[in-house]
């Protein structure tokens, strides 16, 4: 075992990369849940985004078109969830599971001919001055655009929920859909938009795994990141900045256990690999005492009677 092999600068830099897929998926799901909808299909939308993004990036040679396609793919899959839960009034838990099962199958079907191919590289930014700061520069200011986009989305969602009328209406729909309906707000329309936004974010997160973090395509490569993102929303008590904090925490754990594997710690690889999941459970236990912050209408079916 040689812990001195672990370079703290590289560790923090790769932590930010490892956290971004979770961050993107979780901030999307946060919006969906604040609008009162529980979409358990995050894993399915992520893996669909991962393959859509990968395929388009390989075919066109442009990672940016890939990310765009991933967002569209994720949103398209979430539209199936919209049809089921908003128009066919199906149970949200069951529909979310259906979305995940379907997404996993669809992605491995689409991805058959893309196994073992290298995608075009996503360029890292070089911001003049900022990137040249010693230590801080390479750690914080020399990543790709999507990583910063993730942070920007968190800030945007925070501002939307806190300062805008649209955010207030969305929260009203999530807290009490009957009251919001009585006030004349279009409950279904608002929820549809929230679900599609969540799908697009999850798709982006998935593509970040297949285009930047890994970068290649393997079946089932999201490996539960979508579920960790769902747990993260609970962990964050439905607050945007806490999602960022939680994502970096989980990113840190993932990177640290990978580094420990590489450094040859005396713990078997399998037990290190299961640590992110075990820690998710532990965190859920610690934080689930406080349920009061969950949106009031979360997971309930809305049917306008009049």
């Amino acid at each position: 075992m040689d812990l001195s092999q672990i370079n703290p600068i590289l560790l923090v830099a790769s932590l930010m990369v490892a956290a971004t897929p979770i961050l993107l998926a979780a901030i999307g799901e946060l919006v969906v849940e604040r609008a009162g909808v529980l979409n358990l299909g995050v894993e399915g939308m992520m893996i669909t985004g991962a393959i859509c993004g990968f395929a388009v990036a390989v075919e066109t040679g442009s990672p940016w078109l890939g990310f765009l396609a991933a967002a569209i793919g994720g949103a398209a899959l979430s539209f199936l969830f919209v049809i089921l839960t908003q128009f066919a009034l199906a149970n949200q838990v069951a529909s979310g599971l259906a979305l995940t099962l379907f997404g996993l199958g669809l992605s491995s079907l689409l991805g058959q001919s893309y196994v073992g191919i290298k995608p075009p590289p996503t360029p890292d930014l070089h911001i003049p001055l900022l990137s040249d700061i010693p230590i801080l520069g390479p750690v914080v200011f020399s990543h790709d655009l999507i990583l910063y986009l993730g942070i920007a989305i968190v800030a945007g969602v925070w501002a939307l929920l806190k300062f805008t009328r649209a955010g207030l209406i969305m929260r009203a729909v999530g807290e009490n859909h009957d009251a919001a309906h009585a006030l004349g707000y279009k409950v279904v329309r608002i929820r549809v938009m929230a679900i599609l936004f969540g799908g697009a974010c999850a798709g982006l997160g998935g593509a970040y795994i297949s285009l930047v973090r890994v970068p290649q395509w393997t079946e089932g490569m999201t490996a539960g990141v979508g579920w960790i993102a769902l747990a993260l929303v609970v962990f964050a008590s439905w607050k945007p900045w806490r999602v960022l904090l939680g994502a970096y925490l989980f990113g840190g754990i993932t990177v640290l256990q990978l580094n420990l594997q590489a450094a040859g710690v005396a713990i078997p690889v399998e037990y290190l690999a299961m640590s992110p999941y075990v820690i998710t459970i532990v965190v859920l236990v610690i934080l689930s005492a406080d349920k009061s912050r969950a949106p009031g209408s979360l997971g309930r079916i809305f049917h306008a009677t009049s």
Partner: peptide, 22 residues
């Protein structure tokens, strides 16, 4: 026929089931 096609097929079944439950 790719193996994943059957997985998609099974997932599709669940979709139709949930939608038709309406």
């Amino acid at each position: 026929l790719p193996a994943a096609a059957i997985q998609v097929f099974q997932g599709m079944l669940l979709f139709f089931l949930l939608a038709l439950d309406l």
